[in-house]
Amino acid sequence: MGVLYFLPESPRWLAYNDRQEEALEILARINGKSKDDIAVQVQYREIVESMEYEKAEGRSLGFREAVRTKPNRKRLLLALSVAPLAMLTGSNIIT
């Protein structure tokens, strides 16, 4: 909890909440560069465009939408594969 205080705000969250200027500042800080830096600018643009797209597309997907398209199924499969990796590799038997 104490550490949280020192972490910068998420640039994606800021962009999502229409606080673009702050988002850009934080991105520059995370990258250790200035706001005019090309790398920072490109990252910033990617974030803002993705956010606009996601806002237009609707917010969170429920379970059904999450398994409807192929890319999403693959994402979910990879995320879920972490579960047996963490629990069924043997560390639970050994300890």
Partner: peptide
Amino acid sequence: EVLSYNMRATGIALQGIAIKSCGVLVT
């Protein structure tokens, strides 16, 4: 990291269920 923004909440919830289910199986 692999879940896109709009399915991150659902995905993490399902991952939680999967982890606990595997835990139950092991126990």
